[in-house]
Each structure stands twice: as C-alpha cells, then as structure tokens.
C-alpha cells in the first residue's frame, strides 16, 4: 500500500468545498426551474425589503403612527394616495408599508418560539421513547385537539387583547406541530444504520442527537418554518380582525380590515388593500416553502 506524498500542499478552497458548491448550484438550479418558487422568492424578498426600509420609503410615514387629517378622510385611490385614505385621513399605502414590519415581527416571533420549544421536545421524545415520549406526545396531542384559532381565542380572551398576548397565544398553538414533525423524523432517523454505526464507535446519546439526529431533521423543519411564517401572519391578522390582536392606531393589517368593515361597501378600498397585502405575503411564503420542500427532496438530487 503506497504512501501518498504528504508534502502536497492543502488543496484550494474550491477543491475542498467542491461538494458544497455543487450542492448549492443544484439548489439554485432546482429553485430557478420552478416559476412558482421564484415568484415566492421575489414576493418574500419584496416583503422583507418593505419590512426593513418601510418607514423610509412610505410616502406619509407619520400616518402610520396615527396622524389625523380629517379633511382627507375616506378618499378613493388617487395620484397622491395610491390606496386611498382611511377614516382618520391617513394614507392607507403608508400604513400598509409600515405594517409589513409588524407582520414580519409577529410571524418570526411566533414561529421562532414555537420551533425553539417544539424541536428539542420532539427530538427527545423520538429518541428516548418510553415514558418520556408518552408524556410529551400526550401533551402535544392534547394541544392539537383544540382547533388552532379557537385555542388562541380562548387564551387571548383570558389574557386580554393586544399584540403581545396575541403572539403568546399563537406560539402556544403552533409549538405542538413542530414536536409532531420532529418526533416522526427522529423515529425514522433513529433506525438508520449510521446511528447504529455511531453507537458502535462509542458515541453517547448527546453526541448522536447533536451530530446525527438534528442535522437530519433540519430540512423538514426549515420547510415548515417557511410555510408557518405566512400562516402565523395570517392567524395574527385574523385575531386582529376579530378585535383581539393589535389595537389602533397600530397599522396591523388585520386590525385595519376590522375597522374597514364598518365602512363597507361604499369605501371598499379600505378593506381591499390591506387584505391584498395579507394575501400576497402569505402566498409568497407558501410558494417559497413549497420551493424549499422541492429542493430538499432527495429525489430531486438525481435530476
């Protein structure tokens, strides 16, 4: 058996990371092939842009904070006010743009908290089995037995209306979904030969969980997070619509529609545009999530 020349210099960056580079190229290629995924990416990117630079690019930023111009109330869409004005005379477009930041914040918080609670619980439940799993899964099933919006409604009714309570309630509704997903994935990864192999070379449970189980659970979790951000924004807007979420003058999209409802049907634009904003944002995240799911699907690797 020959000895290779160990005095060879270390191969360059491209050489060492050739595998990762190819993997990213494949991801991008698969994403680009799908029109819907690209559309989702564009919408989400636009939404993130609005969230980041909203107050700077809104035409009437002070309107978003509740400025009152009673002389301009309820005007239809025009050159000065692309989306018209609301009952306080505030520019609806500006309020929608600034509202993007609130929605993003809500979506990230809800899914972030839910994932931080749910993923570790799921891995532990899946790996340990026995009593631990039984207890965790029973609790998860219990929370999942109550339909989401109803549970959130009950929690917010108890805690009192407001954005913070809305986020807490929805995070409590969302965490069990992650436990279910991760527990199922952990159960199947646990049976893989490489886990047995790791045990045979002396790996202990924490090592296996961190190095083998978690990385293999990541793809479905990432897809779920991307899909959930959209749905969380929708749920928060729904609670806002009922009147239990954000309070005026906060430019949260759902709350805006709630107020707008009393001005139907004559001033229809007031309900139309915020709803459109919600729809497009959720659509964007859903499309992106679908695209991510396609690129993580191992079958697409062979193409």
């Amino acid at each position: 058996m020959s000895q290779q020349d160990t005095s060879l210099e270390r191969p360059g960056f491209r050489e060492r990371h050739a595998s990762q580079i190819r993997m990213w190229r494949l991801y991008i290629h698969t994403l680009r092939k799908s029109f819907t995924s690209m559309l989702g990416l564009v919408i989400v990117a636009f939404f993130l842009f609005l969230a980041a630079f909203g107050p700077q690019i809104a035409p009437y930023p002070e309107d978003a904070a509740g400025a009152i111009h009673m002389s301009q109330r309820l005007m239809p869409p025009s050159a000065e006010h692309w989306f018209g004005t609301d009952e306080m005379g505030a520019d609806i477009l500006s309020r929608i743009i600034v509202g993007a930041r609130i929605s993003l914040w809500i979506g990230l918080l809800i899914t972030g908290i839910a994932a931080l609670i749910g993923v570790p619980l799921g891995i532990i439940a899946g790996y340990r089995g026995g009593w631990t799993r039984a207890v965790i899964m029973r609790l998860t099933d219990l929370f999942l037995s109550v339909p989401g919006l109803v549970l959130a409604l009950a929690i917010v009714a108890s805690l009192g209306p407001g954005i913070t309570n809305c986020v807490i309630a929805l995070a409590l509704v969302w965490w069990p979904g992650y436990v279910r997903l991760v527990e199922a994935k952990t159960l199947s990864v646990k049976e893989e030969l490489f886990v047995e192999s790791a045990r045979s070379i002396g790996a202990k449970t924490p090592w296996i969980l961190w190095h083998h189980i978690l990385p293999n659970c990541l793809s479905p979790v990432i897809v779920k997070i991307s899909l959930d951000i959209g749905m969380a924004i929708l749920a928060a807007a729904s609670l806002g619509f009922i009147g239990l979420g954000a309070r005026p003058p906060s430019p949260e999209w759902g709350a805006m529609i709630s107020v707008a409802r009393s001005y139907m049907p004559d001033w229809w634009w007031y309900s139309f545009f915020p709803g459109m904003a919600i729809f497009l944002t959720v659509l964007g995240f859903n499309l992106l999530g679908d695209g991510l799911r396609d690129i993580f699907d191992p079958r697409s690797r062979d193409r």
Binding site: E192, L193, F194, E196, S197, A198, S200, I201, H211, H212, P215, N216
Partner: peptide, 14 residues
C-alpha cells in the same frame, strides 16, 4: 468494531 451491511445507509449523508 463492526462493518455494516449497507454502506449506503451506514454513512450519515450530512
């Protein structure tokens, strides 16, 4: 030590 049957699944793809 052990050498396993199926090399395709005995190595963690990640």
């Amino acid at each position: 030590q052990m050498v396993f049957q199926n090399p395709h699944s005995a190595l963690d793809g990640r």
